[in-house]
Structures are given as C-alpha cells and as structure tokens.
Write a protein that binds this DNA or RNA. Sequence first.
DNA 1: AATCTAATGCTACAATGTTGCATCAAAAGC
DNA 2: GCTTTTGATGCAACATTGTAGCATTAGATT
Lengths: 152, 152
Amino acid sequence: MPPHEHPAAADSARELIAAHGGRVTRTRVAVIEALQRSAHPLSHDEIGATLDGAGIGHDRVTLYRALDWLVEQGIAQRIAGGERAWRFEIRRDGDHRHAHFHCERCGQIVCLEDVPAAAPTLPAGFAVARAELVLHGACADCGRAGVEGKEG
Amino acid sequence: MPPHEHPAAADSARELIAAHGGRVTRTRVAVIEALQRSAHPLSHDEIGATLDGAGIGHDRVTLYRALDWLVEQGIAQRIAGGERAWRFEIRRDGDHRHAHFHCERCGQIVCLEDVPAAAPTLPAGFAVARAELVLHGACADCGRAGVEGKEG
DNA sequence: AATCTAATGCTACAATGTTGCATCAAAAGC
DNA sequence: GCTTTTGATGCAACATTGTAGCATTAGATT
Ligand SMILES: [Mn+2]
Ligand SMILES: [Mn+2]
Ligand SMILES: [Zn+2]
Ligand SMILES: [Zn+2]
C-alpha cells in the first residue's frame, strides 16, 4: 500500500490497537474490522466465519482471547443477548449504552441505538456499573412474514 | 400428615402442579418450594444443591426438564442474569416483570421488585414479548465491605 | 391390582468457554 | 538488517451448561 493514502478502515484498526499498547496482529485487526462493518453485535462464531472468509487462521482460543482483550481495553463491548453465547460490538465515539432487541424467531440481535439503557434509581448501597436492557420478541422482518408462526 | 391442616407451602406446590395438569413428583414439589423460599432467583446448580439437602435424588437432566416445564406452565420464569447459566424464580400473583441486579463481586442476582422492566416504544414492526433489565455492579453488601476491591 | 403414560435416570452428545504450555512473531534494541 | 524480548498464538485437554434418545419407573386413573 502506497503512502499518501487517506487513513482507511484498516489503518484505524491498527492505530486503535497500537494506541492501547497492544501488538497489531492479523487476528485483532480482522476482528475489529468485522465489528466495525457490522450493523449488529456479532457472536464469536460469526466473527470466526469472517476470519475464515478473509483467509486468516483462527484458533477458537485465540479468538476468545482477542475478544477479551478488546473488551478489557474498552474497544469493544460484550452483549449478553438472549442465547447463551456472548455477542460483541465495537464501541463508538459518543457512546451511550443502548438497548438491544433479541428476535426469538431469527435469533438476531438488533441494536436499538435510540433507546438508552438507563439505570433507574436503586436502593441505597447499590453501585451500578452498567445497565443492560434487552427486549425479546419478533423483529420487523420476522413479524412481517407470517404472524401465525408457520415458519422461520 | 393429619387433615384439618391449613394449606401449607407443601400443599400449595402440589396443588399448583396438579392445577396445570402435571404429575406431582418429589422433584417438582421440591423445586417449587425451593423457589418459593428463595428471595432471589436460583441457578440450576443451587436448586440441585437444595434437592440434595432434602435427600431427593436429582439427575441433572430431570432437573433441567422440571424447570423447563415450570417455565412452560408459567409457574416459574427464567432470568438471563450476567453469567452463562439461567436462573429461575417463582412467578408471584400480581406479577409485574421487574428488573434484576447482578453483583459482579459475589455473583448474586437480586430482585429489584420496585423497578419495573418496561419496554420502551420501538421502531414500527417490532413486537415485544418481554423486557429484561439487568443492572451490573456491586450490591449493597459487597459495596459496604472494601470499596478498594480487596476481597469478596 | 392392573393399566396407561408422564416423568425419570442414564448415556451420549453439543455448544460455549477456559487453562497450561510450548512456539511464534511483533516491536524494540542494537 | 539481525538479535532479543515478550506478547500473542496454536494446540491439547478440560470445565460448564444444556439437549436428545431411550429404557425404566412411578403417578394417576380404572
Ligand atoms: Mn448495540
Ligand atoms: Mn426477580
Ligand atoms: Zn427476526
Ligand atoms: Zn454482592
């Protein structure tokens, strides 16, 4: 890649990693870019598939550790979602924690950017670090096709 | 047990099961009573330990299935919580779905009965079946002892 | 008591995530 | 550019949480 290039997505990921004092590896770069490209939080498996697509060797453990590191550094955040697997999304700049919607039909998690996950007032003594608000139901796509259950 | 006894907790559980057309088994009765006694949602393992204590043979699978059945029947409900295991709590009468607090220090889940888990207005097409609101942080007990991390 | 079948107990398996350790390679030093 | 350092990886083995199939048991009904 020649110089005189305006900072592309690839560079952003590299810089992001370096800025946090980590080593810039193919895996980390690819994971960050996958998260940046995605409109919704990705599961470990989905990210793994992306790495496959990019021809990047991916050991399960390495991927878990890469994701752990991104979360530790505050570059990404973990979403509990409805199923048993974590999902991950990149942390944007003016980041206010938002709610998520879990579709019980297609299994997808949708970011509800406009719905804040705000912590209400709690009994004395409780210190809230973060709030997670997850709505479960049928997403717009799934609701449209077949209200009577039929298919998925 | 003699007659002329006012309906105790044990009977309630039996009646609850029968009312839903299920067979009254030791496992189901013990599980319901454990949930009824507990002030906070219980994990599968915690319930299993209770059964042990009551000298009731408990196969992992049976317990999972008993809990599934209770949830299907609307007798109990599942809480996602912060960790990877489901937790279960009994469904009370005038039951409004409430928020939960997950203490990241002691791992406990606390019911916030007074904090409703209300679903906000969503984009058109989304059908919300239920809302889950989980606050993460340090509970009153854990916050009190040692703000500086030290121990748990 | 005999019958019917829902629930159980077992085994085997799947999915998700973790630990330990040898090896590799990114970044720094020369 | 070559060497050194150590963070990151890859592999094997394991832990936890949850499911599926199927023979057996026991709760309810007659
Ligand atoms: Mn999101
Ligand atoms: Mn509760
Ligand atoms: Zn959907
Ligand atoms: Zn606590």
